[in-house]
Design a protein around this nucleic acid. Structure first.
Length: 733
DNA sequence: GTAGGGTTAG
């Protein structure tokens, strides 16, 4: 089995997610905005710089191909591993909503002047005339708001009490004051049945806004259809309300459908509707469509406002596209639009998502210099960026600045500060803040605050403090969520407090927590280091309730007669069911479990499969001077397995007299990650057990180096029958 | 929230 790893390395290139066969195909829309495909990414000539290009997909490194004895395989043979090694990806929102119109190939002559795609005039609002009865009417609306929503007769009785005649203006004023959508909708229908005056567009619009608040898209749509059948004109306000409601309900196909419909009726969107639809495409991750719309709008003479730029900024942030973010800033500069606070907030967060903490910091400085005062959202975004980047110094400085400048803080910001403390391991600071938050007026510590503290104690191994907090949550009735439970269980597992772990698990299930993949991964990792089989059985019991398939798989691994094919198929199915971020941890834990149960053979099979399914990209790196093994993303057991596998492959290479480089290195990393040091120590111990000639480099901690001469000598020595004892100590070649 | 668009914690 192990001997096939070198060929597996060939296959892994096929299974890397970036080269998946499901390459995105651009979707066109059928509105008059359609442009010729080759023109789609051209940005208006006013822009100073070229638009962001889609990033080239990362290419696989051209590593020297292992020598293969057989002839070139046929095309169908070459394609086979592709279908058998590709895992499905998590569904994206645009894949869930396949309602977007399919492309039609309508030729648009690019030499003709582009038609205008949006109206530069915003919808004019009618001005209110002063209503002397306003007080009475507001009181009346208040009564309606307070009446029992389920008691129709009571509501009708209130309606009869209206002190003033229901004129158009009075009805509008009342409708605007009704809060829950049920009341507004009821009043709207009541007015309609009175037939005192024609129902104009504005009545529908106000009612729709209320319905949007209640996310009642189906009702909004029925009202819109009623407008069409009753011949009431739909205006830009109607359409933007419909579109944004569909968007907030996640019905992106519907949003696009109504946008298309607007064009079909000959109504031109104004910039508000236009921004709304830009946001729809942005939320779908359809960057090219958004840029195309943007470009067409610019070509029609549109000067986008900060809202439009905020939409673009958010979209690029979600895509982690730094070039895109920079493009937004450049566009604003060249058009002469000054970013407002919301734009800065969006871009700061986007910078964080694109992994640019330094640029976020300078953008923040620029914002403050421009005279804007950061609000709680600005500070939340920046604290989050610094926390994730582990920039302790900047985070603490900002925290200090917040206090000395008396900048606005809210509870979300406090909770974010707590989470940042968890990221940076600042236990004392977090405790102080937590106490401070307890004493704040009008503020209650919520599940987020407690979860952040559980995270801090959990990752710091403070198991007693974590349990105290858990009891406190139960006592105070603070919601205990899946993340808090995961942190606590992880902590209890590391401390081998299995009875407490099982109790926390039971409480979690009682409280209605639904185990997610991370939660199961956490239980699986506890199983992996349970030396005591009774403990393992307890934890497997919890896992059985959360993910029975995983437990059956562990049993399959234990049974000697299970074939490799069975393991392969079942493992693939499990990985496909799991979300992408837990796939590698699952594989790592399962390898550890196998090694702990002395089934190294199975561990090698799993590593092979993990590699095959693309869970360990970049594990092997080769230059002419050095071959290296990067085990930073591997667990201890997986790292041992990978190391042995590597030595086995090299050993065979030596037998075949293949060319070898001067230097060999294994890299465990020794950086900021909590467990990195542990991995370096473990590999050091393992290397010593094997008496392998790898030495930890002094200038590069976490890097184990061996020369070709030493390595070849060692490998040849342990292969000779005289020293076969080395094999008993765990070397599996 | 006073007829429509954007930011808002793991």
């Amino acid at each position: 089995m192990a001997s096939t790893l070198s060929t597996a390395l060939l296959e892994v290139q096929l299974s890397s997610p970036n080269q998946s066969a499901e390459a995105k195909r651009p979707t066109f829309f059928t509105s008059p905005l359609r442009t010729h495909p080759t023109k789609r990414l051209l940005i208006s000539c006013n822009s100073a710089r070229s638009p962001p290009k889609p990033k080239p997909r990362p290419k696989s490194k051209a590593s020297p191909k292992p020598h293969l004895e057989n002839q070139n395989p046929s095309l169908s043979d070459q394609l086979k591993p592709l279908s058998s090694t590709i895992l499905t990806r998590n569904p994206r929102p645009d894949q869930l909503n396949s309602l977007l119109p399919k492309p039609k190939s309508t030729w648009v002559n690019p030499t003709k002047p582009k038609p205008s795609v949006l109206s530069l005039q915003r919808h004019k609002r009618s001005s209110y005339s002063y209503n002397p009865q306003i007080r009475d009417l507001k009181n009346f609306a208040k009564k309606l708001n307070e009446s029992d929503p389920d008691d129709e007769n009571a509501i009708l009785a209130v309606l009869e009490e209206n002190p003033h005649p229901v004129t158009r203006d009075n009805a509008l004023l009342i409708l605007n004051s009704l809060k829950p959508w049920q009341k507004a909708y009821l009043f709207f229908n009541w007015v309609k049945t009175q037939k005192l005056f024609p129902m104009e567009t504005i009545f529908y619009n106000v009612t729709m806004k209320s319905l949007r608040f209640g996310k009642k898209f189906d009702v909004i749509e029925s009202l819109a259809n009623e407008m069409i059948s009753e011949d009431v004109k739909l205006d830009n306000i109607t359409y933007s309300t419909i579109i944004t409601c569909a968007k907030r309900c996640g019905l992106f196909g519907k949003a696009v459908e109504w946008f298309e419909r607007m064009y079909k009726t000959g109504l031109m969107p104004d910039e508000v509707t236009y921004s709304a639809i830009l946001d729809v495409y942005a939320k779908l991750g359809k960057v090219e469509e958004v840029l195309s719309l943007y470009e067409r709008g610019r070509a029609s003479g549109w000067t986008p406002d900060p809202v439009a730029f905020s939409v673009l900024g958010k979209m690029f942030g979600e895509a982690g596209d730094y070039d895109g973010i920079r493009y937004v800033l450049q566009e604003m500069k060249s058009i002469g639009v000054k970013p407002n606070l919301v734009v800065y907030n969006t871009l700061l967060e986007a910078m964080g998502k694109a992994g640019k903490p330094g640029l976020a910091r300078s953008l923040f400085d620029e914002m403050v210099e421009s005279g804007l005062t950061p609000d709680a959202k600005t500070l939340t975004a920046l604290i989050k960026v610094y926390g994730k980047a582990r920039w302790s110094k900047d985070a603490m400085e900002l925290w200090e600045r917040m206090r000395s400048n008396n900048w606005q803080m809210d509870f979300i910001l406090y909770n974010t500060l707590l989470s940042m403390c968890a990221d940076l391991g600042l236990e004392e600071e977090a405790e102080r803040l937590f106490e401070h938050m307890k004493q704040l007026e009008n503020s209650k510590l919520d599940s987020w605050s407690y979860t952040a503290m559980l995270n801090i104690y959990g990752s710091g191994g403070k198991v007693d403090k974590a349990m105290e907090l858990f009891e406190e949550m139960l006592r105070l009735g603070v919601e205990f969520n899946v993340m808090g439970s995961t942190c606590l269980i992880q902590c209890l597992g590391r401390a081998r407090r299995i009875d407490d772990l099982v109790r926390v698990f039971d409480v979690s299930i009682e409280k209605g927590i639904r185990p997610d993949d991370r939660f199961c991964g956490c239980l699986l990792s506890v199983v992996s280091y349970c030396a005591d089989s009774e403990d393992a059985i307890e934890v497997l019991g919890c896992l059985e309730q959360s993910n029975p398939r995983l437990v059956s798989f562990i049993r399959l691994l234990e049974e000697e007669e299970t074939s490799f094919e069975t393991i392969k198929e079942e493992f693939k199915a499990i990985l496909n069911e799991a979300s992408v971020e837990v796939r590698r941890p699952f594989c790592n834990c399962l390898i550890d479990i196998c090694r702990n149960r002395n089934s190294n053979e199975r561990a090698h099979e799993l590593l092979y499969l993990g590699t095959l399914y693309g869970l360990y990209p970049g594990l092997h790196n080769k230059t002419s001077a050095e071959w290296s093994l990067d085990v930073r993303s591997l667990s201890v057991g997986a790292a041992y397995t990978a190391f042995e596998e590597w030595m086995g492959t090299l050993s065979k290479g030596i037998q075949r007299e293949e060319a070898l480089p001067e230097l060999f290195s294994a890299y465990t990393g020794a950086g900021t990650h909590k467990f990195a040091q542990g991995l370096a120590n473990s590999l050091a111990a393992h290397v010593e057990t094997l008496a392998a000639p790898f030495k930890q480099s002094e200038e590069k901690p976490g890097c184990f180096v061996a020369t070709r001469e030493d390595l070849v000598f060692w490998l040849q020595a342990i292969q000779s029958p005289a020293v076969s004892g080395a094999q008993k100590s765990g070397v599996h070649f």
